[in-house]
């Protein structure tokens, strides 16, 4: 088991490297650089040269990549001083430095992620809790009462939840609960850095919850509908398996059959999607964060492309990759517990 985990973690390295190199090259292929223009105005070449020199964008691409991975000082060492480390230069991904932002001129990518990722993580965890908390029980009930009114209602609500996008639910919530009824504040997030352990809000009072409810629900309902449909389908399939018939014919109590034998197995597909879902949700959802004016990480995925902020785009992409491969590893480990036939030795 431990060997398996170590092997998998070592396997992350080539994945991360491949993602890094692809992203690094692809963002530079988009026409237009980060410093070509101020507003509508094309900057004089001498000024572009000054700025590019500051951020080492004048170096050959492969040198830039080495610098991104290993740091400017390593590049200086490797090239015998041909490319020099300057003040504010990158210490390299390998030492946890994601470099300076090219658009937010006085901030580093590390600062930006430190400020926005915890907020996306808080929102994501709440939304997932809602998604799972409603989705799994709803799916189970729908499956157990298949073709009853309960099933039809649950399925109808689930289809509705999947089909209404958060960009519709969000403004409707704001209009109803904030402006018409005045129960909740319109927007913004009720927690700001510093966070406990880097991501837990210091104040979990009404200020936090009143602002968290609408975005979490807007994001969570879609998830719950998705999870409910998946749980229902999977459980229905498992209930038709031979071993369930065997369990029943042994005279086991129906509850034992469902909970011990059917449910555990039926959750494998749900857990499978939970890995990528987790990685996607906690790294920020652009639309919900925009609608509710939340300073999450979602906007950096979108805006760093428009701003040609190579460094932010690299940083958030790599963080997403890391979370994705990590979550998938956990998912695989969970399989062994859900289905005793799966072994990792």
């Amino acid at each position: 088991m431990t060997r398996y985990i170590i092997r998998r973690i070592l396997g992350f390295i080539p994945v991360m490297f491949a993602v890094a190199i692809f992203t690094f090259v692809l963002v530079r292929v988009i026409p237009g650089g980060p410093f070509d223009f101020v507003g509508d105005r094309a900057l004089p070449p001498s000024i572009v040269a000054n700025i590019e020199a500051k951020y080492h964008l004048d170096w050959p691409v492969h040198i830039q990549f080495i610098s991104y991975l290993l740091g400017d000082d390593v590049v200086e060492l490797l090239t015998g001083g041909e490319y020099e480390m300057t003040a504010g230069g990158s210490r390299g991904l390998i030492r946890g430095d994601l470099g300076p932002s090219l658009f937010y001129r006085s901030q580093s990518v590390n600062d930006i992620i430190k400020g926005s990722f915890p907020i996306s993580l808080q929102l994501g965890i709440l939304a997932l809790a809602i998604g799972i908390g409603i989705g799994i029980p709803a799916g189970i009930i729908a499956a157990l009462r298949q073709n009853s009114w309960v099933d039809y209602t649950a399925t109808f609500v689930a289809v509705l939840g999947v089909s209404i996008p958060s960009m519709v639910i969000g403004p409707v919530f704001i209009w109803l609960f904030a402006i018409r009824l005045g129960w909740l504040p319109v927007a913004t997030w009720g927690a700001k850095p510093p966070f406990i352990l880097g991501f837990i809000p210091r104040n979990l009072g009404w200020e936090f919850w009143s602002k968290a409810i609408m975005p979490s629900v807007a994001l969570g309902t879609g998830l719950s509908a998705y999870i409910a449909r998946l749980t229902r389908a999977s459980l229905l399939q498992v209930l038709r398996e031979d071993y369930i018939r065997t369990a029943r014919s042994k005279g086991l109590h129906e509850r034992v059959v469902i909970i011990v034998h059917a449910l555990k197995n039926s959750l494998i597909p749900v857990v499978t999607i939970m890995g990528p879902l987790f990685a996607a949700i906690v790294t920020g959802t652009f639309i919900v964060e925009q609608i509710f004016g939340i300073n999450g990480m979602g906007k950096h995925f979108v805006m760093s492309v428009g701003n040609r902020d190579y460094q932010i785009l690299m940083g958030v992409t790599l963080l997403y990759t890391l979370l994705l491969v990590g979550a998938n590893l956990i998912v695989d480990l969970t399989y062994a517990w859900l289905d005793p036939r799966i072994r990792f030795d």
Partner: peptide
């Protein structure tokens, strides 16, 4: 059991 499953979905090396 459900609670544990919820956790399992969310548990991650980092958090």
């Amino acid at each position: 059991l459900l609670g544990l499953l919820v956790m399992a979905g969310m548990v991650l090396s980092a958090c």
